[in-house]
């Protein structure tokens, strides 16, 4: 049996979803963003909600997310995505609304918007890519940068006496009454990818169902910023990132009914 005999539509097991555009992504080779974009696109296709999903892109590496996921999108100012998503969802309650944000966007400049959108229990999904570094601007220290980790703005390693501690913002968000689902996932192995997609679907469904704010953190790599090969970055992430940012659900509860 040759490849030709196998390559038939009925034998297809995996291919790029049509929700993902043919535009080549600008991400570095091996970047976690690509997998996460793909999973969000697959989730939208499988849930059949392309016509009612509206995304909000951040400032950071994922600023061009709207070029790759074929749905209506708004591009936010740095850190303001949750405020924008708040209005989109409040004014179009029948829509599924998500933000896509990095650690600088969500956990530094946009901390106020993030916390208050979560605290109001906005019916949005927040997809949070935590690679412990500012990727787009060239690898500077992020609030999530690990202790001792070297970046362009802490070239001798993050000294917590000077620069504070890695911010576990998802734990903080899980404490808020407005969040219904907070989980920490990764996309470096097949099993993790399958789990991450389930989390994405659940978060999107929560937005549709008006259950409150869902936060899916993806502990990710930035192999360019970390100056490692993609595979090595995965290993480094398993060894170092997961210790500080352990995977798993932080919160999963039906939100209490509240009067709007």
């Amino acid at each position: 049996m040759t490849a030709k005999d196998i390559i038939k539509p009925e034998n297809l097991v995996y291919t790029k979803t049509k929700i993902m555009t043919d535009t080549p992504m600008h991400y570095c080779p091996g970047c976690s963003h690509g997998v996460i974009h793909k999973l969000i696109s697959e989730a939208i296709e499988e849930m059949g909600i392309q016509d009612k999903t509206i995304g909000v892109a951040p400032v950071g590496c994922a600023v061009f997310a709207y070029n790759y996921i074929d749905i209506d999108f708004q591009e936010a100012a740095h850190g303001r995505a949750p405020a924008i998503a708040t209005a989109i969802k409040r004014l179009q309650p029948d829509k599924c609304v998500f933000t896509y944000q990095g650690d600088g966007d969500l956990a530094a400049i946009g901390t106020a918007e993030t916390i208050h959108a979560c605290n109001r229990g906005e019916n949005i999904a927040i997809f949070f890519v935590n690679n412990a570094i500012y990727g787009m601007t060239g690898g500077q220290m992020a609030p999530t940068t690990l202790e001792g980790m070297k970046t362009a703005t802490c070239p001798y390693g993050r000294n917590t006496d000077l620069y504070g501690f890695p911010l576990k913002i998802s734990n903080l968000l899980a404490e808020l009454d407005g969040t219904c689902y907070v989980t920490r996932q990764s996309v470096h192995k097949v099993a993790n990818i399958v789990r991450a997609k389930k989390a994405i679907k659940k978060a999107l469904q929560n937005s549709m169902d008006g259950k409150g704010t869902s936060v899916v953190e993806f502990v990710s790599t930035c192999n360019s910023g970390w100056k490692m090969s993609p595979h090595k970055a995965n290993l480094w992430m398993e060894e170092n990132m997961f210790a500080k940012y352990p995977l798993g659900d932080l919160k999963d509860t039906e939100k209490k009914h509240y009067e709007k």
Binding site: I54, A76, A83, T86, A87, I88, R90, Q92, E113
Partner: peptide
Amino acid sequence: ELAAINMVYGGAGC
């Protein structure tokens, strides 16, 4: 005010 104007952005964008 920052959040408010960005909510306006989001709403106006709709």
